[in-house]
Nucleic acid binder design. Structure first.
Lengths: 217, 217, 217, 217
DNA sequence: AATGAATGAGCTTTCATTCAT
DNA sequence: CATGAATGAAAGCTCATTCAT
């Protein structure tokens, strides 16, 4: 009984925490970190400012928590996929699927996400940078190990597995960004096969003929 | 004589303009838009604040001018290359070279650049977003037309040329970002051949065998 | 039985009261009124904030209670001494002893004490000011009456007894403050004799020669 | 002409600086540091808040400047007096006069002054503490050297000159405080002779008879 | 009684921008 | 044109206090 009571309080607290983060996410993704005030978040979450500061040390901390939470969610999904007992190429196909689906569901978030892990992020936010990078690296490393598996099984060419991982991530992100900026060009959604095809087979029509293609036309 | 005088004035004006932009660039790349004050820029450029406001309507305008200037510089370099009278693959090779070199020379700028073209950039800066995206699109379109040329010449597989352009850009950026975050992994600089190789030939060892590879291992 | 229960409760209550005040004293003396939060006091006292507000109307009230408690303690000690059946000069000697000992035991408290009875203490705290001053005045008056006794017994010169009281207090406080700021100059503790000597005999070597001393050297 | 122009600007600036400090002094002395807001000071000084922050780094800095300015003023007056080519006792007499007059003119300031040099002053204000104490110490040392002169000239008893200095300061301050709290008791102002008399001659009627007085009555 | 999450008025401080000189 | 002191809206954050449990 006592436990139940405690649990209810804790559940309430956790629920409030989530509500604040959700309100913050909406505002941050819509306006960017610097263009959102704590008052706005409080208002949207229907709490007082003081309550925000009971949950988070400061604005940075709130932001930090928000980004890392989403990133971890993404990371867990991808780890589950990459760890599956499936052929290498199928795992990679699923990885691409996941990326498209996850960011499709969080399209506006992708911007804030990249603003943090790639773009402007300085001074005080260096810890976030560090933490976010760590998670991203873990994902990259995990893809790389799948790539290595592919190389050893002679499915992939004998290339640096990490380079393969970067390539996959790069193509995914380029398509994601473009579909985000011009959603009208992808009426039925971004197709994972396109990315998969480009990643696996490359651009060339006739690989055996590369030298010739380079010199003369 | 009058003309000379005006010309001298104009040269001076242009030089002051450049000095302000340079001071701003250093500060913005080091600290990010929101963490740089107009006073700091004025101080670094050795002008008074009032003078900054004679050159630029406001802080946004200054930032806007700075980003677009750099972006145009990059765009011009790439257009010159893509317009050259060279085989398709060589133009693409040079394009990769240019990207690596340009961002290598402006490494800290790359962050602010992507913050604008990809990540957080909102509200008031929507015009900058629009303008920057326009330039980026022009580059993408120009690459796409080169890709199309490659497809028509049967050098490239029969794929959407714009998808090929996105793929190339994606791989370039993935490597650039990674080399920026972990410069120690690229002691002799990022190699254009790696990117070229991955873009053109893809990951697979034996393309003819794809179906088999997907199903069983 | 009922009485016993109540009594136990009351004892508990009184003990809690004391614990809160002690925690508050440590924090206030270390950081000053404005730099201590009710939360800090609650934490240090190992109670919840709510409990603090069951004992004290508000922060002012807590502070008020704390200061007056200490002041009364001091006052009681000095009254006991000044009321003793001893020669005037011995009572004064003991008074000095007490002052040194009391503030020696409560060195950090002396600061907060003087901040209240002398320095900054305004607006809302005017009642505390009034109450504290009342106690201090009672002490001063009591010393003055001892001084008057001394004057009547021709031990002291025919001076205003209250002036004598002020003089004694002034010398005591000057030495106390100095020893507080520079404790290293008083390795064996502040000596009551020094104060006693200065108070009773003054600075002059040859009192009869005062006029001469003033004019020529 | 150019010089005149500059001078006018500088004079204006200095005058604004003084106006802000004066407004601050009035408010601080009336309400204490923590009960005065920067907005109030700005309003009273008839400037915007921003202007306050052009003159002072922050609230602490403003306060710091104010206290030290007054303290230096007092210090200079007393140094001039103590350095005069006059008999020791006359210099001390003038010192007392000065103290009474200075604090008489700045009666409300005395409170804030002692709150700083004696009472509550913590954390961030430790530098002010240090600076203020330094000035006070310089005064004390200067008095002590005058006292030493008096001892060497056999005007004063063979006592520690610094103790004599402390005694003088203590008596002065006790009277000042009391006259501040109960101004109605000093209709014609505090008399310097009283302090001088008590300091020089002490309380005892018959010094030669001290031992007897201590034991019996 | 005891708790501690929620409150929100009110504080200090920043900084883009203006404009008289 | 150049200057830079003055501006003041608006931000982040604190903390005494309340009250449902």
């Amino acid at each position: 009984m006592n436990e139940k009571k405690l649990s209810r309080r804790e559940r309430l607290k956790a629920s409030n925490y989530r509500e604040i983060l959700e309100a913050a996410q909406e505002l941050f993704t819509a306006n960017g970190y610097h263009n959102v005030t704590m008052n706005q978040i409080a208002e949207k979450a229907e709490f007082s400012i003081g309550t925000l500061y009971n949950f988070f040390k400061n604005k940075e901390d709130l932001y930090h928590s928000l980004i890392l939470e989403k990133l971890k969610e993404f990371s867990e999904i991808q780890f589950l996929t990459l760890d599956k007992d499936l052929p290498v190429l199928q795992r990679i196909g699923e990885f691409i699927d996941n990326a498209i689906r996850f960011f499709g569901d969080h399209i506006p978030f992708i911007r804030i996400f990249f603003a943090e892990t790639r773009g402007e992020s300085h001074n005080l936010r260096s810890r976030l940078r560090h933490d976010a990078r760590k998670i991203m690296n873990e994902i990259d490393e995990r893809i790389a190990s799948v790539m290595e598996e592919g190389v050893q099984k002679k499915i992939f060419r004998k290339l640096d597995p990490f380079h393969l991982a970067l390539t996959l991530q790069g193509i995914c992100q380029a398509f994601l960004f473009h579909s985000m900026e011009y959603p009208e060009q992808y009426p039925e959604g971004l197709k994972a096969e396109i990315i998969f095809n480009l990643f696996t087979r490359g651009a060339l029509a006739d690989v055996s003929n590369l030298d010739h293609a380079m010199d003369a036309e």
